[in-house]
Design a protein around this nucleic acid. Sequence first.
DNA 1: TATTATTTTTAGACATAGCTAAATTCTATT
DNA 2: AATAGAATTTAGCTATGTCTAAAAATAATA
Lengths: 226, 226
Amino acid sequence: MYTESIEDYLKAIYEIQKENGKVSTNSLSEMLSVAPASATSMIKKLSEKKLVTHKRYQGVKLTKAGLKISLEIIRHHRLIELYLAEALGVPWDQVHEEAEKWEHVLSEDLEDRMDAALGYPTRDPHGSPIPSRDGTILELDSIPLADLRAGQSAVVDEVSDHDPDLLRYVGKMGLYPKTKFKVLSIEPFNGPIKIKVEKSEHILGPGAAQYVFVTDIKGSKREASQ
Amino acid sequence: MYTESIEDYLKAIYEIQKENGKVSTNSLSEMLSVAPASATSMIKKLSEKKLVTHKRYQGVKLTKAGLKISLEIIRHHRLIELYLAEALGVPWDQVHEEAEKWEHVLSEDLEDRMDAALGYPTRDPHGSPIPSRDGTILELDSIPLADLRAGQSAVVDEVSDHDPDLLRYVGKMGLYPKTKFKVLSIEPFNGPIKIKVEKSEHILGPGAAQYVFVTDIKGSKREASQ
DNA sequence: TATTATTTTTAGACATAGCTAAATTCTATT
DNA sequence: AATAGAATTTAGCTATGTCTAAAAATAATA
């Protein structure tokens, strides 16, 4: 078994790798709220344990073993989030914080029981895919809502779960995963976006629209943003 | 907030205090599987934080503040045990281990939700009382099954939850809390005990009978053991 | 009561994981 | 190509919580 700290680093590396491609010492230290020097020393340790590869002054990359562990933790995290939301009615902006601590101490047996109780789900409450036990994960190719154009209809795929305020904000306009909506207008230069969800209209700031990932309704994959 | 380690010590102190009366450095180090020197140094720290009082070479005792925290953790522990048993069907010999880790990271909000989902219960799956939020706890005055005499009928109140094997053993003969049974015979010098549960008879070793706590059916409080 | 045995404490060390400050290396700009 | 700025690493320190070995205090017994 690995320490909680190691698990947190591996998870962070996976997430940064997915978003930015390259995983720098700095990005890690920021995501984990530690000093850059702390990230360096942990990277060294992970490297010795063959969980990541690392070339000095260049980024870090998960090895197969490191990836496996990080997906196990992410599976814990997302199963817990969904379980709390479904079984105990915990609001979607609170499940992340709870899962963040519990994920490190969840037994495999309990993981299986929750999985079964939920009917072997594939998505967490924010729409993020839940890795399978054997370490496969569905890769989404959705685009930021901010990249849509006026007139387009789309479905919410995933909402970033790192900021509870963001979740409450987009939740208030009903932008949950699988929700269909239409872009009525979008102002240039990162201006506000007017959308229609169900029967009601909302204005969405670009800061939020960046973290809501959607698939446009005609199935087109990626629109140029400007 | 206190560290996991501090919480574990406080909980252990409470439990030893309840069973033995006096809480020695040695008993603590045994219960927590640490060296006596480790217990001493933690006792010093707890004492500085005013969570326990301590006279050198004499025992340790929880202060009001220490008692409060220890009951909070025990509440977490027992609510979790019951929740896992009820909601996810975790067998009663496994819930302890799971709760042991989860109890330290359970939020107050989730505690409340579990409490409500369970209908504000007062006992965990082993029959132990669940402290209330404000820190009151029901004191049981049950006696060890081993102290009963032939012919007496009794009801199971509580089974010690520290040994999964014990729980499986007594579980096999149906000795769950609230179960009524009758002592058919009891051999002297800590001999085996023959009991009848429902329609079936079982033989129970004295080692197990010591950890099954019961109330005899006529309401008498405490029988001399020999 | 004196001595032995047990319990408890002290002293000093180690691992983990964090920090700051300084040195190093890389990158970008002039 | 030289240099300023940013990112990264090293060096050295700190806190927590553990350990072993030795010393001190208490308890048990001859």
